[in-house]
């Protein structure tokens, strides 16, 4: 396109400033990238870039600190909410959020996440649920669907032997300290837009001091599900959404009427 012609065009979208120039190590089509981008867009829109501290987990998103133009710390496996608690209590004027996967949050970090919600710590958690352990090679996670094949359940998850998937959002919504708990999906443009609004409201919950906020995002893992990126999105819509319904589980009344 000629330069003169481009000057008559409006810029509609460009890479958000809160994302660094680094190339992510995520597999092609992994929706971790979409979640990163949404968080970065929300931080830009709210003007929080200079006062945000992220807490990276262990898992595929362990290198999240390389991908954001904000302050970041790396926590021990599952302990991101505990670390975020400390940061928020020492520096209460900062925006503190953790970015965790299902192995980190729902398995080894189960105690930390439950207690952080029970204490009503004023932090935000972005929870990526892709029903599998991605980084270690596709083992069964606490969120793996019944009958789903993984490298550690090659005949499909047997619920008699290894139990049923854990629904974190429903469980955390019973906590009095929680201010905003919702589940969204990243499998099509409409749901990605809804997910971005939910992330915005979660950060607003923290800015208004209304307690613990979490957005659970149903995410894909094309490599370990052994499907193409587009088939993985279909798998979310067909198989994950019926098990993990998309809903608002707890919304503080002050946030419910907020227009963003």
């Amino acid at each position: 396109m000629m330069l003169a012609e481009k000057q008559t065009m409006d810029l509609i979208y460009q890479r958000p400033e809160s994302l660094s120039d680094a190339i992510t190590h995520y597999c092609p089509g992994c929706t971790h990238g979409i979640a990163h981008r949404l968080v970065a867009e929300v931080i830009d829109e709210m003007g929080l870039r200079e006062k945000t501290i992220g807490v990276a987990p262990v898992g595929c998103s362990v290198f999240a600190y390389n991908y954001f133009n904000t302050d970041y710390v790396e926590a021990a496996h599952g302990r991101a909410p505990a670390m975020a608690t400390g940061i928020k209590r020492v520096l209460p004027d900062r925006t503190v959020y953790t970015y965790q996967g299902d192995g980190d949050l729902a398995s080894i970090g189960m105690a930390e996440i439950m207690h952080v919600a029970a204490r009503g710590e004023n932090i935000t958690v972005i929870f990526i649920n892709n029903a599998i352990y991605g980084m270690t090679g596709g083992q069964m996670a606490p969120t793996t669907l019944p009958g789903m094949r993984t490298t550690s359940s090659p005949n499909g998850r047997d619920v008699e032997l290894s139990g049923y998937p854990i629904r974190m959002s429903e469980m955390l919504a019973t906590m009095d300290g929680a201010g905003y708990i919702v589940r969204r999906s990243l499998h099509n443009p409409a749901n990605i837009r809804k997910a971005k609004k939910a992330i915005r409201l979660a950060f607003e919950t923290q800015e208004h001091g209304l307690g613990f906020s979490m957005v659970e995002l149903l995410s894909s893992c094309p490599t370990n599900w052994k499907v193409t990126p587009n088939e993985a999105l279909t798998f979310i819509a067909d198989h994950m959404v019926p098990v993990f319904p998309l809903d608002d589980f707890k919304v503080h009344p002050a946030i419910a009427n907020l227009k963003v």
Binding site: I12, Y13, I23, Y26, G33, R37, I192
Partner: peptide, 20 residues
């Protein structure tokens, strides 16, 4: 210039322009 490609792009690789 509907922006849908940029919304689904996991690597924020797409810049979108639209006629003024």
């Amino acid at each position: 210039g509907c922006n849908i490609c940029a919304i689904v792009c996991p690597d924020a690789a797409i810049t979108v322009y639209r006629e003024a």
